[in-house]
Each structure stands twice: as structure tokens, then as C-alpha cells.
Design a protein around this nucleic acid. Structure first.
Lengths: 217, 217
DNA sequence: CCGCTGCCGTAACGTACGGTACGGTACGGC
DNA sequence: GCCGTACCGTACCGTACGTTACGGCAGCGG
């Protein structure tokens, strides 16, 4: 036993984390065609160790997905001085972060394998990605939305409905097109622009006193 | 040779269409775990015929996806008397149709295999699904949007931006959650409700004379 | 120095499945 | 009746890959 991080129930040694990083890289390169042999070779470890640590191929994939998920936590957004400007900034920053993650090669690769395995799996990868993707996004965004409502800046009855509308305005067809292999280059500039547009559209729909121009320009 | 339908370059006999329907059913049941043997058994045909007709496994999958795509064409929406009511009805009907298709087991299954194969394929399934999914939706919806703009009912500069916003408002997180295996029951009633909400939100953002709270323009 | 543990590297096994070959049958043309 | 065509069913082949087994080495406590 060496230094280990606490990931829920799991504890990973540094060596194991290196192996999972290698698996991640291979997942990005080869997708679900990743083989145990290729992981062992890339990580310079024996297959015996892979099976000892992760049980089987499914366990390795599950651990890999969870390992990646454990990297992207945090980013709390709760300033004390709360007004329309900070709400707007928070929403836009959130949208920008999300689009950056979504369009990253790792996210695309993990979502692909999870979608491919969904429905006929024991360690359902889909549930894990769901939990660390859309659901995590909802958990992180909802406090901001509710704060906006409590301070009278936003109007909605169901927080979940408001969140899902924001999700739609931000993600639109980007994710499904990326997953289906569409070449869709998202530059930092276009992401900033889309985040701003989505935020203003959201405020036009749910904001209390929006004198801003509705509609993208 | 028997009766054949014209599907682009392809011509399928009735027998072959039956085989592809069997493949579709198996794709829904087993996903990408579908085997050539299982298709042959389900369709009561020989593997030899499968390979003769479709070349290889990839060819069979491609033909299956295209066969399904060829079924869901049509549904033109161009009434002559065009006003806000017919625009609203057209948008809502469009949203409702799309949500019904998206949430169907066949759509989910096909999108799953296409996503799984995207990026590392020769007959890229992803492109085909993309072409018959989001892109087909755009081609069908854009004339309606442009008609709305030409008649002064809608305001936007880029048709594509307007379409993608509508897409986001309609689909939201539904598709990705379904693909990832989330149990998400969409009843006819909830689809109608969501279609109406999405349409009204879209009109609030892009409609010309929204007497709603925001007083832009 | 000895034995134990943990691990690497590789060889070996079993199996599932893509792809092919072949025998048997129905049918339509001559 | 005879042939060619199209097809079914099944047996077969080759291979890729998940999984297991084993030999060797390095570090470490005694």
C-alpha cells in the first residue's frame, strides 16, 4: 500500500492511477476496441495485475470512468454579493465550462463507450456517466438557480424544468453531433459566444426584469 | 429478383427487407452484441445469403440503418394560409413528432450503435444517423422557420442558429439521458406538454409580436 | 542469506464470432 | 427430365481477445 486517494469506496494507489490514465488515453484513441493487452502494454504492467486490481474488463472500464469523474469535481460558485450581474456571470461561466468539457476528447470517448454499453451491462457505465454528467451538472447549477429565484431575479416554479431548459439552450445539438462523429470545431471564442447567447436567452425566458434584447444576434 | 424499392442506389427485395426488419428487432434487443448467426436464425435465412447481400457485418448494419431511415421520410408541413396560429401549430407538431421518434426504442438502439461505431468505421454509421437524424430534422424545419421570417412572424438572422435553439428547447437532456440508459418515461401527455412549452419558449425568443413581459424591439 | 510479496512479461487456454464451404431443396426455363 | 439459380441449414476455419497460469526479478523483513 502506498499513498491512496479516497474515491467513494475505492482507494487507488499511484500505480493504479497511472494505469487508469493509460486506459483513458487508449479509450480516446481506440474507443471500445480497447483490449486488456493494449492497456497492459501501454501502462507497462502485467495483465495479471489488471485482473487482480479491477476484476475483469468491465471493472477496468468502470474504474476508468470513475477515475476520470473524480478529477472534474469542485468549482463551487457561491458569491455573497448576489445580483443580476453575478447571476449572469455564474450562468455564463457554467455554460462555458460545460461546453468545454463536453467537447473534450475524453468526454466524447467516455460518453461513447457508456452509450455503447448502456442497457446490457452489469456495472452499468451509463449510470455512472449519467451521474457524473447531466446529473452532476444539475446538482451544481440548481443552487444558483434557486438563489436567483429567492432573490427575485428569476421566475420559475420547477427548478428542474428551469435547469433542463438551460441545458437545452447551452448544449443544443452539440453533444449528439459530436458523439455521432460530426466534425464540429468549437473554438474558445465560439464557446464564449454560445455561452453568452444561451445565458441571455435563459434570462429572457426566466428573468424577472429583462430589458435586454431577446433573440440571438 | 422480385419487387424492389428504390433506396438511393440500393434496391432491396422483399426478402431482404424482412431480413433487415429482423436485424432491427435484434438491434433493439441486443444492441451491438448482435451476431450474424442470430440475424440469420431470426430471419430464417442462411449466413451465406447475409454475406452475399450485404458484404459483411458492417454492410448489414449500414443497410439496416438506411432501411430504417427510408421508412421515416415525408411529413411535409406547408399550409397555404400561413399565420401565427399555423406557425405555432407547425412548430408544436414538429416538436411532438421529434420527441416521439427520439424516445422510440428503435431510435435509441440505432443511435447507440452509431455512437459506438463513430470515429473508427469505414461505412461510418455515425454519418448516416447524423444525416437522417439532426440534419434531416433541420432540412425539414428550416423552410417553416424561413416562411415565418418572410411573413414577419419571426425575427432571426441565421436560420441555423434559430433551428439549433429550437432543437435545444425541444430535446434538452432527453436524448443523452435515454442513450445513457436513464429510465425516462415519456408519455403522450408529457410530450404534448413539452412540445407546447418548447414552442412557446421559442416564440418568446424569436417571435415578432410577443406581448409577453419583455419589451424588446 | 532466505523466504515472502508484489509485480512484470509472456505463454497458453477457451471461446465466441466473423467469414467460408458445402450438401440439400425448391423452382423456373428449356 | 435436366440444368442453373437461389436459397436454407449446418459444419467448419481462423482469429482475436478475455482470462488464467507460470517463470523470473526486485525489494524487504528476519
Amino acid at each position: 500500500m502506498q499513498l491512496a486517494v479516497d474515491v467513494g469506496e475505492n482507494a487507488l494507489t499511484e500505480r493504479q492511477k497511472d494505469v487508469l490514465d493509460a486506459a483513458l488515453a487508449l479509450l480516446v484513441e481506440a474507443g471500445d476496441a480497447l483490449t486488456m493487452t493494449s492497456v497492459a502494454r501501454r501502462a507497462s504492467c502485467s495483465k495479471e495485475s489488471l485482473y487482480k486490481w479491477f476484476g475483469d474488463r468491465d471493472g477496468l472500464l468502470t474504474a476508468t470512468v470513475q477515475w476520470q469523474a473524480s478529477k472534474v469535481r469542485a468549482v463551487p460558485v457561491n458569491p455573497e454579493a448576489f445580483n443580476l450581474a453575478s447571476l449572469t456571470a455564474g450562468l455564463q461561466r457554467f455554460a462555458s465550462d460545460w461546453l468545454h468539457v463536453l467537447s473534450g476528447t475524453i468526454s466524447v470517448a467516455l460518453n461513447r463507450v457508456a452509450v455503447g454499453h448502456a442497457g446490457s451491462d452489469k456495472h452499468d457505465l451509463g449510470v455512472i456517466v449519467l451521474e457524473n454528467g447531466p446529473f452532476a451538472m444539475a446538482r451544481r447549477l440548481k443552487p444558483l438557480l434557486q438563489l436567483g429565484r429567492d432573490t427575485g431575479l428569476l421566475h420559475f416554479s420547477e427548478t428542474d424544468e428551469a435547469f433542463r431548459t438551460f441545458f437545452g439552450l447551452v448544449v443544443r445539438d452539440v453533444q449528439i453531433r459530436l458523439l455521432l462523429g460530426d466534425r464540429l470545431e468549437l473554438t474558445d471564442a465560439s464557446i464564449e459566444r454560445d455561452s453568452l447567447r444561451a445565458t441571455q436567452q435563459f434570462l429572457a425566458l426566466y428573468g424577472a426584469q429583462t430589458e435586454a434584447a431577446e433573440g440571438g444576434h
